[in-house]
Design a binder for these strands. Structure first.
Length: 255
DNA sequence: ATGGTGGCGCGGCCA
């Protein structure tokens, strides 16, 4: 089973790249963030034509998530319990006996911003939600744009980013709390090259200079981590014309 | 270098 997370920064713009990537890579599930469209505008025919089913939690202009999959998803969740939030950032479903949670964690903007408080509160509600999901679903995979670089290895310049948003201690502690509940960062289950990132700013030729952060993650419960055979970033789509600022992250499981 | 680029949608927000 191949599970992928990709922040596409507008599915309308990136649809041709998504279709090409699906055809070439044939994931079982592709969790997408920042589709930036309402459900009514979703390209149903194009996705079905590629051989995929879909679940969508769309929003105009901002946010919006979906899951493309070969099998139908059931038991769909679109909200975090205890958080009354119009922002569409969560989509969870069950595929066979695997539970998949797709997240677009708030960015936070800066430590001084109101949005930072919203992010930390959101992560607190997520923490509680995932504890319950872990109890209900032994085979749980949590993916998405976490907007958190878990440690300094995930940052091109840890000194410059110290205590900045995406790298601050409260954010990193929220990420570590998820791991403490039993989730594994699948990327760190394997030896990895240095300076592997999943997001590069559009500005200042950051991608060409590999000035990035690893903020997109695939976490797995113990039983799924035990059968994880690979976890990596596919930089190829980031090299295309008019790319997303994020690359897909991929995990493969012997399931 | 307090800028820079990109998406949405047509001014300003968000990342």
């Amino acid at each position: 089973m191949k599970i992928v997370s990709w922040n596409v920064n507008s599915l309308r713009v990136r649809l041709p790249q998504v279709l090409d990537w699906l055809a070439a890579n044939q994931p079982d599930m592709l969790a997408i963030q920042e589709i930036k469209m309402v459900d009514e505008d979703f390209p149903v025919e194009a996705i079905q034509g590629a051989g995929y089913q879909m679940l969508v939690s769309g929003q105009k202009t901002y946010n919006g998530v979906c899951i493309l999959s070969k099998l139908a998803g059931t038991d769909v969740h679109k909200d975090l319990p205890g958080l009354d939030d119009p922002q569409r950032r969560v989509l969870a479903a069950t595929y066979g006996d695997v539970r998949l949670v797709n997240l677009y964690v708030p960015n936070g903007e800066s430590l001084e911003s109101e949005k930072y408080g919203y992010k930390l509160n959101w992560l607190s509600k997520l923490d509680t939600y995932l504890q319950h999901e872990l109890k209900k679903h032994p085979r749980l995979v949590v993916v998405g744009d976490f907007n958190i670089a878990p440690d300094d290895r995930d940052v091109h310049d840890p000194v410059a980013w110290k205590d900045q948003v995406l790298c601050s201690e409260p954010e990193r502690q929220a990420f570590q709390s998820l791991l403490a509940h039993g989730l594994k960062d699948t990327f760190r289950l394997f030896d990895q090259p240095e300076r592997i990132f999943s997001w590069w700013d559009y500005r200042a030729m950051a991608f060409r200079r590999n000035i990035g952060l690893r903020i997109d993650h695939i976490l797995a419960s113990a039983s799924m981590a035990a059968v994880c055979r690979a976890s990596y970033v596919d930089k190829a789509p980031r090299k295309l014309e008019r790319p997303s600022d994020h690359a897909p992250v991929v995990a493969e499981f012997d399931v």
